[in-house]
Amino acid sequence: MKQILLLFACFLLCGGIAVADPIVEMKTNMGSITIELNSSKAPLTVDNFLKYVDKKFYDDTIFHRVIGNFMIQGGGFDKSETKKATLSAIKNEADNGLKNQKGTISMARTGVVDSATSQFFINLVDNHSLNHRGTSSGAYGYAVFGKVIAGMDVVEKIGKVKTISKSALFRDYPEPQVIIESVRRVKK
């Protein structure tokens, strides 16, 4: 019995128990999307995203940018098109080995490498040009931190909505609005 306990203790101490990656459900007015987050490859990004999820920050925000055959972007504006106050920007983890492939979720950012806060996008196709290719700003890429595991049909439906140009800020704006009703952690 003592040997079994020692083996079990070694198993635990050596990291033998795999911790399941967090899963979130994003409910939209067009259906639900389930996303598995990759906390081993993008720990800072996943932690940041979950802080917003736990604060219910994404409730009643919109997908404000939809470009067919490219991506859908949300997480920064409420239904009245007001930009929401965010936490501090995070370090860009685009060099984590994950690729911007169809169905992955990545952090949106400005031209500054470490500028991502709350906005994210879901890739509608494999977007190789968004992958990490070097350390300069233009080549650094966008940090992938998870993938859609259910509801890709909803993502694709959102990707096909009609868009309009409302202003310089909202050039690919869905009409009617695509609303993120809530994002919650899913219990396994």
Rank of each mutant, 00 (worst) to 15 (best):
D54N: 15
Y52W: 10
M71F: 11
F145P: 01
R133A: 14
V113W: 01
L13I: 13
S40E: 15
A85L: 13
T110F: 11
F77S: 01
F145H: 01
S129L: 14
S106E: 05
N29H: 03
D54G: 05
L44N: 13
T163I: 11
T135Q: 14
G68E: 15
I122C: 10
D172A: 07
V125P: 02
K188C: 00
K91R: 14
K55S: 13
G15N: 10
R133G: 08
V148W: 00
V125M: 13
R184F: 00
E156I: 07
K147E: 12
G141M: 07
V125F: 09
V155Q: 04
G74H: 06
A18G: 13
N29E: 05
Y52G: 06
D60F: 04
V161S: 07
A9V: 08
G134A: 10
N127Y: 08
R109A: 04
A89W: 02
G103C: 10
I17H: 12
V19Y: 15
K147T: 10
K55G: 00
G103S: 12
K51M: 07
H132T: 06
Y52N: 07
M152L: 14
Y142G: 02
S88P: 08
V66S: 06
E175S: 14
F120W: 13
L98G: 02
L7F: 13
E93K: 07
T61P: 02
I122R: 05
T135C: 00
A89I: 02
S118P: 11
I179N: 01
K83N: 11
I62F: 06
A20Y: 07
F121E: 07
K160E: 13
H64D: 06
K83I: 12
Q3I: 11
T28N: 04
F49M: 04
F145S: 02
G75T: 09
I158M: 11
Y173E: 11
G97I: 11
A42I: 08
M71G: 00
C10Q: 10
G15H: 10
H128K: 15
G68S: 15
V46D: 01
Y173C: 04
A150W: 00
S165C: 09
V155D: 03
F77N: 02
N123M: 04
S115K: 10
G16M: 09
F145A: 03
Q3H: 09
N48M: 04
L12H: 03
I149T: 14
I164E: 15
S165H: 14
L6E: 11
T45F: 02
P174M: 05
Q73F: 12
Q119A: 14
F170Y: 06
G138S: 15
H128S: 15
H64Q: 06
K83V: 12
S167F: 08
E81A: 05
L169G: 01
L13N: 08
D54Q: 06
A150D: 15
N100K: 03
K83D: 09
D60M: 11
I105S: 03
K188S: 13
D114M: 09
H132P: 00
F11P: 03
A18P: 01
H64W: 01
S115A: 13
R65W: 11
V155R: 02
A85F: 04
N123Y: 05
A150R: 12
K91T: 14
